[in-house]
Design a protein around this nucleic acid. Structure first.
Lengths: 120, 120, 120, 120
DNA sequence: GTGGTCTAGACCACC
DNA sequence: GTGGTCTAGACCACA
């Protein structure tokens, strides 16, 4: 996996985990890969991988069974969605509106731009 | 001014400068506040303020007259606009589309959200 | 049963056993539940349950009859009491006094607090 | 400094910080020693020391000024006190009452015990 | 096998 | 100078 250099790796891994939950690749009460597996797969140090787990555990999106591994929390999907939505509304969206304003663009323009872009 | 802890202060100040230019608060060939004034106003270390100036000078959005101060470049408005647009298309927009997808939102939803938000 | 995540499960189970002995739920020379029963009841790994038994066996609070099961030792009550008392005096009590000091509380305050608390 | 082997060092350091705040050795809005200083003083790895800072920052007891250091939060004293009190009421106290009950002791007995102990 | 802690030390961005 | 991240790897307790 490639990591963006502008953001801490462990945060990018945490985002990846959230994505997996939101995309239902990881289901509630299911065990997720071990710290070591993630570390090997993503080619990062186990410590770095662990930080991602700890971050999401603290947000109660995942939980730990001692000696067994990490699991997606009951309600983890909704919690993840709520967190991401809240962040979007309070941070991304205001930022977006401000940028649109500065660039003299409207939301309607986004449709065209997103289609024109090679990224989609 | 409050700064976001996740982004370098000097970058946030540079963004602020760009905003002022795009909003025509700072016009081309007009002198902008000194490093010292900015540092005092925003309560930051003068070194930090200076970095913002140097960054924008390097992008030729502002220029320096020795012993006089910093000025918005001829064409600084368009340069700023171009930079912001490019960044928006290549970075913000793909990011936005991905987030919308994860949150099961569409561009159309943004209209409502942006109106419902207290931020506007 | 809920376990505290900050303390090893097997230690919490051992504490539970001691409680049963001190409360005379388990009497001297009486057979106590098997490792397997404990494991099922408390929903823990049999290995974990076994460690609790071994710990108390080592302290001679319980003993094992091969093929039969575990029993509370002759004198197990007093032994448990003595251990708990010693630990209380040497560990809990100093810790308590320090905490009281930091919180500007006195032993006298404990009376009121313990009554006010919903836990009792 | 000696550390208790039963508890993570970074937690013991965090406790120490709380003590300093409760004892008013560290006052609100005052800078506290740097991560490196703590690491050297307590003879631990800077990483370990940092964990203590991060823990307390997350609880908003201390805050960070970029490139400057950590400071006790406005209201940090009360926050620390509240946290410690809450923990005491919800954890230490029930535990204590249970232990007293098992040992056939009363709160009144604590007075004598605490005086008799060599620790005071 | 699992995670959790810790060390030693590097590198970096930032002030 | 400050903190923040990351690696490499050890050691341990626990299940």
């Amino acid at each position: 996996m490639q990591f963006n250099t502008n953001k801490a790796i462990y945060l990018q891994i945490a985002d990846l985990f959230c994505e997996n939950i939101l995309l239902k690749k990881w289901k509630e009460n299911e065990r997720i890969p071990s710290v070591r597996e993630i570390a090997v797969d993503l080619e990062v140090n186990p410590n770095t991988a662990l930080r991602s787990f700890l971050l999401l555990e603290e947000k109660e999106i995942i939980y730990n069974k001692r000696g067994v591994g990490y699991f997606v929390s009951e309600g983890g999907y909704n919690k993840t969605l709520a967190l991401k939505e809240e962040f979007f509304i309070n941070n991304d969206l205001p930022e977006l509106m401000k940028t649109l304003n500065l660039l003299s663009l409207t939301i309607a323009d986004l449709e065209k731009l997103s289609k024109g872009s090679k990224k989609f």
